[in-house]
Design a protein around this nucleic acid. Sequence first.
DNA 1: TAAGTATATAACTATACACTTATATATTCA
DNA 2: TGAATATATAAGTGTATAGTTATATACTTA
Lengths: 114, 114
Amino acid sequence: MLQTTIELEKAAGILKLLGDKTRLTMLKLINEQTCCVCEFVEIFQSSQPSISQHLRKLKDLGLVKEERKGQWIFYTVNSKSEYYSFIKPILNQLPDQDDKLKELEEKGTRISCC
Amino acid sequence: MLQTTIELEKAAGILKLLGDKTRLTMLKLINEQTCCVCEFVEIFQSSQPSISQHLRKLKDLGLVKEERKGQWIFYTVNSKSEYYSFIKPILNQLPDQDDKLKELEEKGTRISCC
DNA sequence: TAAGTATATAACTATACACTTATATATTCA
DNA sequence: TGAATATATAAGTGTATAGTTATATACTTA
């Protein structure tokens, strides 16, 4: 069983990005779901620019992909990324965050569902 | 198959530490070997205090353990750490760094061997 | 015990980073 | 087309971080 490797400098760069609670939670959330910016704003009780800047960093490394649907832009983990196999086992060890989305659904502020 | 999880805040803290090229390389090196501070100084061409401070951070989270042997203090990844199962798959995906130790051996500056 | 070697720590500095405020761009809908 | 909503970007600010220099501590050996 050959284990694929990732260049050390690149790995450190990715881990630095994951080393932020907001971004790490984001990735866990959108690993199997999809979320738009305003949902993140509500979940993290953060400002919209702050969320936008976190997503920008993740996008710059190709870790997430975006898709516009009308006025909303939906973000999802990019499973096609050459680094997905690197981050996947990390995300797998994190506790499920779906309760955050359930909260939105209960409040009626979940957008991504439709 | 139950996957153990790690608290998100803790995970982010650990990933932040791993998100530095020097510390990440250190961990990869001492995952299966042991190294003393002066070896790191030579490998990374860094100052002694800089190396010492990196090791301190890793030690504070319990990721490495130290063992004094005479004037030297040897560092090894702490496989007993409750977070070892979290960092192990990450380290496994990094390219082997043993060439760095081979270099020391060839130069005759490897200490940990005896 | 004094000198030499290895390591740790403290204080300082420069840079990186996350966040804020302000503004620009894009889309929807009346 | 104009107002409202969603998102991105730019500029500024405060804090965290990695490195430096200086010094302290611990061990070894002559």
